[in-house]
Design a protein around this nucleic acid. Sequence first.
RNA 1: GGCGCUAUCGUCUAACGGUUAGGACGGAGCCCUCUCAAGGCUUAAAUACGGGUUCGAUUCCCGUUAGCGCUACCA
Length: 478
Amino acid sequence: MPRVRFAPSPTGYLHIGSARTFIFNWLFARHCQGTMILRIDDTDVERNTQASLDSIFDGLKWLDLGWDEFYRQSERLELHRRMAWEIFEKDLAYRDFTPATGEDDVKSREDGPWLFHAGMREMTREESDRRAASGEPFVLRFRVPRDPERTVNFEDAVYGSQAKSTADIEDFALLRSNGVPTYHMASCADDADLRISHIIRGQDHLTNTFKHVLLFEAAGAAPPVFAHLPLLIAPDGSKLSKRKHGPVVSVTTYRDGGFLPHAYINFLCLLGWSPKNDREQMTRQELVDAFSLDGVNRSNAVVNFSEEDPFDPKAVWLNAELIRQMELDELSAQLLPFARSAGLAADAAKMRKVAPLIRERIKTLRDVTSVADFFFLDKLPPYGKAELIPQKGDEAMALAVLTRGRETLSGVEFTHDSLDCSLRAAAQEMKIKAGQMFQPIRVAVCGRKNAPPLFETLEVLGKETTLARIGEAIAMLQ
RNA sequence: GGCGCUAUCGUCUAACGGUUAGGACGGAGCCCUCUCAAGGCUUAAAUACGGGUUCGAUUCCCGUUAGCGCUACCA
């Protein structure tokens, strides 16, 4: 039974790339009836924040996919340490007493890779034990087998067979001088202990994997299958970062922007993966059925956002498609909180009537605030009286239409068909086109030219509001 | 610098060495139409560059270029 994990570290909010990693793991697990594990990789105590942890749960909760098992690395430190010292006892790791110098360690390495600190790797066990016993701080480093050097190999389910010489792998740290395990140690120890069968993660870990293979080997554990995912990048090719690109990289931005979680999931699946049959819109079950590591490709994918538009047009399209397919009860229920949080006095009954009028006119749930605001407002936002003037008409025509319209509408039943008949008849009598009749009324009632169909709109608005708004428009023209 | 990965329309992608290089989003145009949408139809748009291998390369190999990643007591 496959076991996969999503292992975010709580040092930032849930990132769009992390979300995709989560989704691919989840899809893989569900596809083969495996187990999905959420593991919080919080070994970097200094940088972990509760806000970040909350953000991760927020995002995952919105995605609504769930997981089967949950762990926190900070609660498993003993396991990591035990495994590290076991490796030390096998002489596959050694103490490095070089004091931490911070920046200086990152000195330019023009003559090749940094491998280890001189004098530490060769130190005798006796001296090492003695210095440790005297209380001198040290990091525990893995002793990369380099004499003779050999090649570390693994088969990546996405990138194919990978090889790297141990001469190019540095003696990485296992335990920090404060005794806390590093990412590499904690991650491998947990992956081994939790019997993870497939590690599906970002390609930024591809070269780290050689270290991990060495670690699994040293711990006497069989390495899992590795599958690395191409990275999600910004339109300029740089990696997505909060500092540079702002909130577009956060999952919650899409949630708050009025995206349906499944539209977002569907969109993310299309970034770096393809079902190879031109299918794009897929239900959750269709994605589960179609997902396979074979469909994952190897080049980085651009999330196509811009300064003006933070959302990728394809995500927007997918979202609009899904909205159009929604049941009206469901749609109007989802629209309500967006309308209310924008300060509109929306109630469920009215929203239910508005929903069919805007369903194919909104691309996000949040659009309800700009597309349907006039249904819920007591007073229309100001608009220019020029808006009232119909095509090929003038102010006089607008005034005549509105006057005649008010008269007609005051004596008619507010149902689609009677509205339709009476207004068209009025236009005919006035010897103007139907469009010229409708436009001034539409603007008077909606406050703008672009709006849902007129008769349906009037029906929802009701006679009282309609006549009052036409009256205001007439006043504006006089 | 070293090591690794990648390279098809603007973007996401398809094409077991043989296709008029396909689809989608976005763009443009037309139709429909009370405006806006939705819908229908049409259209522009790509194999980074240079060498091989082959009867034949988007596809395989090498090089160049470009981008990305790793090179921490971050993950």
